[in-house]
């Protein structure tokens, strides 16, 4: 308790930032893998596309903000091309889609290496500077990352749960044949969802680029953590994704402060394994409680039917 009490005031904002980065990098994968079920090994490369788009536009125009605005568009367009040309034929073949996205990841990574070389690149912090709260220095850009993450999660939740597109997407994912026979163009919905996931990865890559050094292997670094967050959070559950990201990102931030980065990553993997093992028990308990409450509520209003 005394360790945490000592630690939290110093590092609490870094915990928030790392948790936000975990959410940010996993948000796109939540859509492509969690919702669409594509084992998307190219997710890290869509982050890479976003980051290098920001870098390229910064180099060409001097405006990194313009680069960040274009990053999701470029990643989204490439997402459409990948989905229409490859993945749309592989939705019923998960292992084939795994291999295909691995191939796509290699092509994108090598193309970026050919264009920009393997030399490290940097994207300028668009704001710079920091502000002070309670005597602690908080960099403005890290604060922006946290706010942007909250905004993107809120927007994604609203899109999936409050719009006609989101409803059609959920119907398509849950029962594609029935959705198709109800007039939903499930092929277009899937393309749009994959493009959205790619665009989310693109904007994540652009946002975290100023706090990292870019190289063609940049995306691979985030791929494992993205999958861990989505798997522990539960496929298709945005609330679960945020919880898992806070758990893993927070654990990593605290452990990195206490021990070396390598051991911290190992311990986070252990936490992830425990999380995967215990998740069904927790979900089962939560579902039982929810079903019990729903049953009690329905007994108050129920009229026997069959």
């Amino acid at each position: 308790m005394s360790i945490i009490a000592t630690l939290l005031p110093v590092d609490s904002f870094n915990i928030v930032v790392l948790a936000a980065v975990f959410v940010l990098i996993a948000l796109g994968l939540h859509i492509t893998f969690g919702m669409l079920g594509v084992l998307n090994l190219a997710h890290g490369e869509f982050l890479l596309i976003g980051a290098y788009t920001a870098f390229q536009i910064q180099e060409a125009t001097g405006s990194v903000v313009l680069g960040m605005a274009l990053a999701p568009i470029v990643a989204g367009i490439i997402g459409v091309i990948v989905e229409r040309s490859i993945l749309r034929f592989l939705y019923q073949r998960p292992l084939d889609s795994l291999l295909a996205t691995f191939g796509v990841s290699l092509i994108i990574r090598q193309a970026i290496q050919l264009r920009y070389s393997a030399n490290p690149r940097t994207v300028t912090d668009p704001i710079g500077g920091s502000f002070v709260i309670a005597g602690y220095n908080i960099p403005w850009w890290r604060f922006v990352i946290v706010i942007a993450t909250i905004a993107l999660v809120t927007a994604t939740l609203a899109l999936i749960n409050r719009t006609r597109f989101g409803l059609n997407a959920r119907a398509t994912i849950r029962n594609p044949i029935l959705a198709d026979t109800m007039g939903i163009n499930t092929s277009t919905v899937r393309t749009a969802l994959f493009a959205l996931g790619a665009a989310m990865a693109g904007i994540a890559g652009a946002l975290i680029a100023p706090i990292n050094t870019l190289n063609p292997s940049f995306g691979v670094l985030f791929l494992v953590n993205s999958f861990l967050v989505v798997i522990i959070g539960g496929q298709g559950s945005l609330r679960g994704l945020v919880t898992a990201a806070v758990l893993l990102g927070g654990s990593l931030a605290i452990l990195q402060f206490l021990i070396s980065t390598v051991f911290a990553q190992i311990l986070v993997l252990v936490i992830a394994i425990v999380g995967v093992r215990t998740r069904p028990l927790i979900v089962d308990a939560v579902n039982k409680r929810r079903d019990r409450l729903a049953f009690l509520r329905s007994r108050r209003t129920r009229t026997p039917v069959s």
Partner: peptide, 24 residues
């Protein structure tokens, strides 16, 4: 024609099973 186009043309289907979207 694909199913969604047939549906939009005015022919709809009430299947025998798998009639719901789980979670909706």
């Amino acid at each position: 024609w694909s199913s969604h186009r047939i549906s939009r043309a005015g022919m709809v289907w009430v299947p025998q099973e798998d009639t719901v979207f789980p979670g909706l």
